[in-house]
């Protein structure tokens, strides 16, 4: 790993200042992607700004039909949080299936969402539930936030402080993990929001997480696994790699949509 200067700010303002004063600063949260990436020399930030010690960046609050999760909250804490389990059990289930137990003890929701790995789980929940990404300076709707593989609406030096999820009537997630990496070959998050159905797909698309209009239309009329039967598998925009062809991923997306509805 190349050298980097480590900062541990105690406030969001100090974190923003540390980032803006750095030549090439990166936010360090759980580090479960950033540290391996640095070890492989795929990233060489000059400065690391650790946001875990900032007051108010961790924890869950539920109020007025929303569940707000601090950006530095670990996957393990989301998976076992009483408010998340009560209001959005599908999200708790998703968090409990990320990586492995040791990764879940460190990795955070803000880190996952900011990184927008095309095969990460959380982007599917954020987009599928129509959540709001809260940063140090604004709020960004999920539909505007994800802009392709590893690309988001975040400006240089902008820090995610929380993700605010609206409580859905029903929501569920199902994925087919790669047997080695445990990242999703495909993952589907379905939500009956009360104001329509949203279906977000991760792992499978060439441009990362995206919504599936055909599945949303089918489930919009009838939120049941049977409703998925009539939807044709759509290869357009599906990724093909050594693990799975585009046709296979398209097929699996529909299968997972059914499982996600059944799990909701």
């Amino acid at each position: 790993m190349y050298d980097a200067k480590y900062h541990k700010p105690s406030s969001v303002a100090d974190a923003v200042a540390a980032l803006s004063g750095a030549e090439e600063g990166k936010v360090l949260s759980g580090g479960q992607t950033l540290i391996p990436t640095m070890k492989q020399h795929l990233a060489a930030p000059s400065d690391l700004v650790d946001v875990r010690g900032i007051d108010g960046m961790s924890g869950v609050t539920a109020a007025d039909g929303t569940v707000t999760i601090g950006a530095a909250t670990t996957h393990a804490d989301v998976a076992s949080n009483a408010d998340v389990l009560a209001h959005l059990p599908g999200l708790a289930c998703l968090a409990g299936g990320i990586g492995d137990p040791a990764v879940r003890a460190m990795g955070t929701i803000g880190g996952s969402v900011a990184n927008n790995d095309p095969a990460a789980d959380y982007p599917a929940a954020v987009l599928g539930l129509g959540a709001t990404v809260v940063t140090d300076k604004r709020e960004i709707a999920a539909d505007d936030f994800f802009q392709g593989m590893f690309t988001t609406a975040l400006d240089e030096g902008e820090i995610i402080t929380a993700i605010r999820f609206p409580v859905a009537k029903k929501a569920g997630y199902a994925k087919l993990p790669n047997p080695a990496s445990r990242y999703a070959i495909a993952g589907v998050f379905v939500a009956d929001t009360g104001a329509g159905v949203r279906v977000a797909v991760t792992g499978a698309g060439e441009d990362g997480v995206h919504r599936n209009a055909a599945l949303e239309a089918a489930l919009g009329g009838d939120f049941s696994a049977d409703a998925v039967e009539g939807v044709a598998a759509n290869e357009d925009g599906m990724m093909a790699d050594i693990h799975a062809s585009a046709a296979y991923r398209a097929h699996v997306v529909n299968v997972l949509a059914k499982r996600a509805v059944q799990a909701s």
């Binding site: 360090l28 650790d50 460190m106």
Partner: peptide, 27 residues
């Protein structure tokens, strides 16, 4: 492995099992 996959480096930090190859000592 040193790539955060094998778990041979797991230790307990403040009561939680983590991969010590994927955490900075200073943090």
């Amino acid at each position: 492995c040193d790539t955060s996959q094998c778990g041979a480096c797991v230790v307990h930090v403040d009561g939680k099992a983590i991969k010590s190859c994927t955490a900075l000592a200073v943090s």
